[in-house]
Nucleic acid binder design. Structure first.
Length: 249
DNA sequence: AAATGGCGCAACCGCTTCGTT
DNA sequence: TAACGAAGCGGTTGCGCCATT
């Protein structure tokens, strides 16, 4: 038993969109709004998969979409955000009005991946970065790579909440959701704050949350915590985005 | 002028996350 | 709380255009 297809691929138009199809889709969405993509094609008179319609609208037809001519400022921002967020194209696109995740992804893959690599190789080898790298390599089992993964909830005790509000860095041992979405037992008695913050964009997948949590309790880890603080500071400082993070807190 | 290779972009695919019942 | 469908997301593919030979 395979995965159920999102739509019947037989007899459904695929490939490039015609002007007529664009028109039908635009007209329908202008009248009825976005959403209900699955039923949209039939209602709009389109012989397309709903996902295809959504993609076409989001990446091409939506009002306000900028096309081409990525400015130097935008390019710089993309590089910086990518360094912080990784391949979280939708998040990066969210900071670039009028740009789509698909466009940024394509732009990155074609231009910036090489550019960024060469840039990093030049700038990352400063003395500070070298010492950081050295310290990190000495604790290889605790390498924290801020690959972006969304955490929908951040669980903080009251004490840690205070710490969070007064610090540019998140607390070194802030309990967050476990990867499986379950709530750590130890935090159930604490206030649950549903708030956006830096942890929305950080992930401990390289070491697994078990590197930080044990039996659903926060480990008092002396080597994980400072390393995380240092890495977070380094990232925010180098991106000059500390104000942005602070605003989120 | 024709063939070929490289590049850029739009679109597809399948997995994950979210929201509802 | 589980199940299910819808929507979102990121990796990948394939087509068309353009430059080069």
């Amino acid at each position: 038993m395979g995965r159920k297809p999102c739509c019947d691929k037989e007899g459904v138009n695929r490939g490039a969109w015609s002007l007529k199809e664009d028109e039908l889709l635009s007209n329908y969405i202008q009248l009825h709004g976005e959403g209900r993509w699955k039923s949209l094609p039939q209602k709009a008179g389109l012989n397309r998969c709903g996902k295809s319609c959504r993609l076409r609208w989001m990446n091409y037809l939506r009002p306000g979409i900028k096309r081409g001519n990525i400015s130097p400022d935008e390019e710089d921002l993309i590089i910086r955000l990518h360094r912080l967020l990784g391949n979280r194209w939708s998040l990066i696109a969210g900071r670039l009005p009028g740009r789509t995740d698909n466009e940024i992804k394509n732009y990155w893959n074609t231009f910036l991946s090489k550019k960024s690599n060469s840039h990093v190789s030049k700038t990352f080898e400063s003395e500070d970065k070298k010492s950081l790298r050295k310290s990190m390599s000495s604790t290889t089992r605790n390498v924290i790579v801020p690959k972006a993964t969304r955490f929908t909830k951040v669980l903080l005790s009251l004490d840690e909440d205070d710490h969070f509000k007064t610090s540019q860095c998140p607390p070194s041992s802030t309990p967050v959701d476990t990867n499986d979405g379950s709530t750590p037992e130890s935090s159930k008695e604490n206030d649950v704050l549903d708030m956006p913050n830096a942890f929305d964009y950080l992930d401990f997948s390289e070491i697994g949350t078990e590197g930080i949590f044990e039996n659903n309790n926060v480990l008092e880890s002396d080597d994980v915590a400072p390393l995380f603080d240092m890495e977070f500071h380094n990232l925010t400082y180098s991106l000059e985005l500390e104000d942005d993070w602070t605003n989120l807190l």
